[in-house]
Computed example of a mutant assay.
Amino acid sequence: MSHTPHELAEEFPDKIEQMHTLKEDNAHFRKLFDEYHEVNRAVHRAETNVEPTDQAHEATLRKQRMMLKDQIAAML
Results as ranks from 00 to 15, higher is better:
Met1Gln: 05
Met1Glu: 07
Met1Tyr: 10
Met1Lys: 09
Ser2Val: 10
Ser2Trp: 08
Ser2Pro: 14
Ser2Tyr: 11
Ser2Lys: 07
Ser2Thr: 06
His3Asn: 10
His3Cys: 01
His3Glu: 12
Thr4Trp: 07
Thr4Tyr: 10
Thr4Cys: 10
Pro5Glu: 11
Pro5Arg: 04
Pro5Gly: 04
His6Thr: 00
His6Gly: 00
Leu8Lys: 08
Leu8Phe: 07
Ala9Met: 08
Ala9Asp: 14
Ala9Arg: 14
Ala9Asn: 13
Glu11Cys: 06
Phe12Pro: 05
Phe12Asn: 04
Pro13Ser: 04
Pro13Ile: 08
Pro13Gln: 07
Lys15Cys: 08
Lys15Leu: 07
Ile16Met: 11
Ile16Glu: 13
Glu17Phe: 09
Glu17Ser: 11
Glu17Arg: 08
Gln18Thr: 10
Gln18Trp: 03
Gln18Cys: 00
Gln18Leu: 14
Gln18Lys: 13
His20Cys: 01
His20Gly: 05
Thr21Ser: 10
Thr21Val: 14
Thr21Pro: 00
Thr21Phe: 11
Leu22Ala: 09
Lys23Thr: 07
Lys23Arg: 15
Glu24Val: 06
Glu24Phe: 02
Asn26Met: 04
Asn26Cys: 12
Asn26Gly: 01
Ala27Met: 09
Ala27Glu: 15
Ala27Cys: 01
Ala27Thr: 13
Ala27Tyr: 03
Ala27Ile: 12
His28Ala: 10
Phe29Trp: 09
Phe29Lys: 07
Arg30Tyr: 11
Arg30Cys: 05
Arg30Pro: 00
Lys31Glu: 14
Lys31Thr: 12
Leu32Cys: 07
Phe33Trp: 15
Phe33Met: 03
Glu35Ser: 11
Tyr36Ile: 05
His37Ile: 01
Glu38Gln: 11
Glu38Asp: 10
Glu38His: 09
Glu38Thr: 14
Glu38Phe: 12
Glu38Arg: 14
Val39Asn: 03
Val39Cys: 03
Ala42Lys: 15
Val43Arg: 04
His44Pro: 02
His44Ala: 07
His44Asn: 13
His44Thr: 02
His44Trp: 15
Arg45Lys: 13
Arg45Phe: 13
Arg45Met: 10
Ala46Lys: 03
Ala46Ser: 13
Ala46Thr: 06
Ala46His: 05
Thr48Ile: 10
Asn49Met: 11
Val50Gln: 14
Glu51Asp: 14
Glu51Gln: 11
Glu51Phe: 02
Pro52Glu: 04
Pro52Ser: 03
Pro52Arg: 08
Pro52Met: 07
Thr53Lys: 09
Asp54Leu: 03
Asp54Tyr: 11
Asp54Thr: 04
Gln55Phe: 06
Gln55Glu: 10
Gln55Ile: 02
Ala56Met: 08
His57Pro: 00
His57Asp: 02
Glu58Leu: 15
Glu58Ile: 04
Glu58Gln: 13
Glu58Trp: 04
Ala59Tyr: 05
Thr60Val: 02
Leu61Gly: 02
Arg62Lys: 15
Arg62Gly: 00
Lys63Gln: 13
Gln64Glu: 11
Gln64Gly: 00
Gln64Val: 00
Gln64Met: 04
Arg65Thr: 01
Arg65Tyr: 01
Arg65Trp: 02
Met66Ile: 00
Met66Asp: 13
Met67His: 09
Leu68Tyr: 04
Leu68Pro: 05
Leu68Met: 03
Lys69Ile: 01
Lys69Leu: 15
Lys69His: 08
Asp70Arg: 15
Asp70Leu: 13
Gln71Trp: 04
Gln71Ala: 11
Ile72Asn: 03
Ala73Gln: 12
Ala73Lys: 14
Ala73Cys: 01
Ala74Phe: 09
Ala74Arg: 11
Met75Ala: 08
Leu76Arg: 04
